[in-house]
Design a protein around this nucleic acid. Structure first.
Length: 536
RNA sequence: GCCCCCGUAGCUCAGUGGAUUAGAGCAGCUGCCUUCUAAGCAGACGGUCGGAGGUUCGAGUCCUCCCGGGGGCGCCA
């Protein structure tokens, strides 16, 4: 049983003994930022004060007395503080036990909070049009979606990642036209695709002078290039879902029929409309244009019908760039019109990114190829760079920083910590030192401030991973791992593991502490999709 | 006009209800290498948390309005 569990149970029991009713969710047990506030702290007295009509400090005092009587294991002091917090001070041994827990659980099972309860969630992300190479923004949200999937999987969600391939419609025709124009040596139409890759594809295309076939050829080749780029970043998908396939399968018609049955379809100006204002949209939307083509929205709604009603996901998370904000209202409304609880569809909008020193015209970040960034700074740095900040914030990425081989560069800083640990282990082997089983190590010798800080940091990982999953914010894992790496470099500087000056027993204890840190680094880096190297 | 995101140190950003001194990294300043990688560690400096009201025992964090930046409001995708 963890210390946290013991304290939480103790608080509930103490409140019960005092006949104070409470909603358990309101009571928080946190690790305070300031050491003088103890090892753990609860706001229980503050949140129940109003309902029992007593001053928070009075409740806190009563709670303290009850908790003292309870004599919880390893708790050496309970005190009321500030406006009514109850702070717990624990024997240092609680950290040693926590370290044992980390090592016992290991990389596989440490920090795997059961939050998802097996809920089946689909995360759709990137879904870039196969009309050109991926840009920086795709890598940014691709890293986000992939890391979010990893974090949620670790927390007990059953995750599937999907890439929606927009392989049909006007843009593919336009791509075909652009390619054919290039092959004829003519100028590409003004709204067409001007990129040099079109010229290259035109040279490879040996098919007929047919827009559809040329478009398909080009989009397939480009999609292949997209896959390769994503693979370089270790961004994986379970499914590549074709928009063309959903249109050809008749599902669009079935979806529109469903809307019709609900009386949400009408004709106007020769087009077929969805009365989406009935279900929360700001305006009605066209499903079938007057020329007979289905709109992107109609396909997208058929696609979401497939996600919810055919494949039966409990929850769907769509990750879009902020430039797709216009789709949100109609998608939500369409899903509602299908009789699906709109809260089961989560749409995360990532703000647009810019690059330091590359003067942006409008959305300039989007014109920088992802492949060239990976060439420049490497895959690990590209991923970590993308996971440094919240996607809610329009950020300016600094490529130069990520190229430096020094502490200023977060990816090197963190990976270097892992490499240093591996170096210690190599040195240990060289010196013929065996690591004794942890049960035989005297962890009580770990009392240096650096050592205690490292253990405190490790204790926080399950909480951090859980928050990252619940808030769909994998960058919280990045923050944590940078912190852990920082603590480790401090420890490394002040506390030698292998040295004639260090007693054998302390060496053994430190070897296990270092192993705990390695586990923490390995877990966090794997969630972020960044390699944990043994040497640099 | 309406909708979404943001405004925190010179720069890039954490922090999204909790504790009389709001954090990190970088830039600039100062120390520390016969030692497991100095690709490191430490110290000092640096902020009216865009502004004004409000809710609360408690607000950078929640609500309202205003100012500023980005994005979006197609029979495009």
């Amino acid at each position: 049983m963890t210390t946290e569990r013991r304290l939480a149970d103790g608080i509930v029991a103490a409140l019960a003994a005092l006949h104070i009713p409470v909603e358990p969710q309101e009571v928080q047990l946190v690790r305070p930022a300031r050491p003088e506030h103890g090892d753990w702290s609860t706001n229980a007295a503050l949140v129940v004060a109003k309902s029992v009509g007593r001053a928070p400090r009075d409740v806190a005092a009563a709670l303290v007395a009850a908790l003292q009587d309870a004599e919880i294991y390893e708790v050496v002091a309970v005190e009321a503080a500030g406006p009514g917090f109850v702070n717990f001070k624990l024997a240092t041994s609680w950290l040693h036990h926590a370290l044992m827990d980390v090592v016992a659980a290991g990389e596989e099972t440490y920090a795997t909070p059961e939050l998802g309860a097996g809920e089946r969630v689909q995360i759709e992300f990137v879904s870039a049009n196969p009309t050109g190479p991926l840009h920086v923004g795709n890598g940014w949200l691709g890293s986000y979606g992939d890391a979010l999937g990893r974090v949620m999987s670790r927390c007990g969600w059953e995750v599937e990642r999907e890439f929606y391939v927009n392989d049909t419609g006007g843009q593919i025709r336009l791509l075909g036209e652009s390619l054919l124009a290039r092959r004829r040596g003519e100028v590409v139409p003004e709204e067409g695709y001007q990129g040099e890759y079109v010229t290259q594809l035109a040279q490879q295309y040996e098919g007929p002078e047919d827009i559809v076939q040329a478009g398909r050829f080009a989009s397939e080749a480009i999609l292949e290039n997209i896959r390769e780029t994503l693979e370089r970043l270790d961004i994986c998908f379970d499914e590549w879902y074709s928009q063309a396939s959903i249109e050809e399968s008749g599902q669009v018609g079935e979806t529109i029929e469903l809307f019709r049955e609900r009386g949400l379809v009408y004709e106007d100006d020769g087009a077929i409309w969805l009365r989406s204002t009935e279900v929360g949209d700001t305006r009605d939307r066209v499903l079938i244009r007057s020329n007979g083509d289905v709109t992107y929205l109609a396909g997208d709604l058929a696609y979401h019908r497939d996600k919810f009603l055919v494949r039966k996901f409990d929850r769907v998370i769509d990750v879009f760039g902020a430039d797709h904000h216009g789709q949100v209202a109609s998608l939500k409304a369409g899903v509602t019109a299908l009789g699906i609880d709109r809260d089961r569809l989560e749409i995360r909008l990532g703000q647009l990114v810019n690059i330091v020193g590359r003067r942006m015209s409008k959305r300039s970040g989007n014109f920088i190829k992802l492949d060239s960034v990976i060439d420049e700074i490497g895959a690990d740095a590209t991923r970590l760079l993308s996971l440094l900040n919240s996607i809610d914030q329009a950020t300016t990425l600094d490529l130069e920083l990520m190229k430096r081989r020094s502490m200023e560069n977060p990816v090197f800083y963190v990976q270097y910590a892992h490499a240093r640990i591996a170096a210690i282990d190599r040195k240990r082997a060289e010196r013929g030192i065996e690591r004794v089983p942890i049960s035989e190590a005297n962890l009580a010798l770990l009392i240096h401030d650096r050592e205690l800080e490292l253990m405190r940091c490790l204790v926080d990982l399950p909480y951090v991973v859980g928050e990252a999953a619940k808030e769909r914010a994998p960058h919280k894992v990045t923050n944590w791992v940078r912190l852990l790496a920082g603590e480790f470099h401090g420890f490394y500087h002040d506390c030698r593991v292998l040295s004639d000056e260090v007693p054998f027993e302390l060496t053994q204890a430190r070897l296990w502490l270092v192993e705990g840190v390695r586990i923490g680094l390995a877990i966090a880096l794997s969630l972020l999709g960044v390699r944990a190297p043994d040497a640099m």
